[in-house]
């Protein structure tokens, strides 16, 4: 199944794209998605995504320590650096 990974701000620049369509196996988790991304991205790009202050949202909802949560086809997974609005 396919999911879409979105990258914002400094992560978009690090990964050099704002979105990647990723083929993950049925029942894949965020950990599996990271594995698929690691196969496509450079080490320094993965390091940016793996930084401790990066938050992940699945379908616009922040996921807290939910790396084991199961993804569904068409899910939108966003990798977001710390926000600064206002």
């Amino acid at each position: 199944m396919k999911v879409r990974a979105f990258f914002f701000a400094s992560l978009r620049e690090a990964v050099e794209t704002d979105v990647l369509d990723v083929d993950v196996g049925d029942g894949a988790s965020l950990i599996d998605l990271r594995r698929c991304l690691a196969a496509r991205l450079r080490e320094d790009q993965m390091a940016a995504l793996d930084a401790a202050d990066v938050r992940v949202a699945v379908n616009h909802r922040l996921v807290h320590d939910g790396e084991a949560s199961v993804l569904a086809a068409g899910d939108e997974i966003a990798f977001m650096p710390p926000v600064t609005g206002g």
């Binding site: 701000a9 600064t84 609005g85």
Partner: peptide, 12 residues
Amino acid sequence: MDMLKTKAVFWK
């Protein structure tokens, strides 16, 4: 305003 600074999803 205080929440926009820390919780709203924007990057500058």
